[in-house]
Amino acid sequence: MKNQAESKRNENLRLSNQESNRLTRECLQTALIYLMNEKPFEQIHISELARRSGVSRTAFYRNYTCKEDILAEISNSIVHDVAVSFLDECGRYDSYGWFYNCFSKVKTNAEPFRLLLQAHMPRDSLVGTGSVLEKWIPADTPAAHYRLLALEGAFINILADWLRGGMKDSVEDMARLCADQLGHTIRDIFTSLTPPKNGETATHKTQREEQHENRR
């Protein structure tokens, strides 16, 4: 009985520590975003970050080793949210719709994306090495791997330029441009991964493409 009570106390303490660390990380992430709106990332110091977030330096180092770790965690969270759009299988027969969904999601997260670009962090520090898309769309051949890298590199550069330019071109215009230039790659990727669902025949694909043509 005594052992059960002690085990219960230890479990409650563990859960309490996890919740405390989660709240600490959220406070630090929020504070970093606010500070990055006020000054360049490289001018932000740990003591300033801890003070703005209301946590101690000890609490900071219990959760992170440096401020770059916070930025990487924010980036991973955003990338994961946007990647949900990448998995939309409409890309197999409607590349315009696929790019439209992606640009819409990025526009919704425009502010944190802008801050990440502003920080000038190396890409590998933010999202790791290799292809981001490949984490969700496995490539089983070298050709598929490099095709994903090519698509990702082109698309990320387009997104970054669009964000830096203040998103002056509409989501519709950007989706149309990318569908024209990169649509065949998207269709090839999804076609190689999964067979068409019931009812999605070549005729269905043609109808989708005609809808895109009518948007021009």
Rank of each mutant, 00 (worst) to 15 (best):
K205C: 04
I137F: 05
R123C: 09
S47F: 10
L149K: 05
K105Y: 01
Q18D: 13
L116M: 13
Q211V: 03
A72T: 05
D188M: 10
K39C: 11
S85T: 15
Q207H: 03
R62N: 13
N63K: 08
G128S: 14
I70W: 02
H184E: 15
Q211K: 03
N101G: 06
A143F: 08
H45Y: 12
H145S: 11
H45P: 03
I158C: 05
Y93L: 15
L148E: 00
V106W: 02
A110T: 08
S7I: 00
W162I: 07
M1Y: 08
V171H: 01
W136G: 01
I156E: 06
T194P: 05
R208E: 08
L148K: 02
K2Q: 15
L35S: 04
T203Y: 08
P195D: 10
H80W: 04
Q118C: 08
Q181K: 15
E210A: 14
N157I: 02
R114I: 10
D81G: 01
T58D: 03
L133F: 04
Y146E: 06
L193W: 12
R215G: 05
E172V: 12
E89G: 13
A175P: 05
V55E: 08
H45N: 09
G166V: 13
K135H: 07
M121I: 07
T191M: 11
E48Q: 06
H120F: 14
H145Q: 09
A139I: 04
S75R: 04
V171I: 15
V55P: 05
A31W: 03
K67S: 04
M36R: 06
F113P: 04
L182Y: 11
T141L: 06
M174E: 06
I44P: 02
W98T: 00
L71M: 02
S20A: 09
A154I: 03
T194Y: 11
S125T: 15
M1S: 11
L71R: 01
E38A: 07
T194R: 13
N109Y: 13
S47R: 13
N214M: 09
Y64K: 12
V82Y: 03
H145P: 03
S192W: 06
V106C: 05
D94S: 11
K67P: 02
R187F: 00
E42T: 10
F155K: 02
L28A: 10
Y93P: 14
P122A: 12
S56H: 04
H120D: 15
H204V: 04
A5E: 14
L115E: 11
F155E: 03
A175S: 04
S75Q: 06
E11S: 13
I156H: 01
G153R: 01
P40I: 01
S20K: 13
T58Y: 00
I44S: 03
W162E: 00
H204A: 04
Q29W: 00
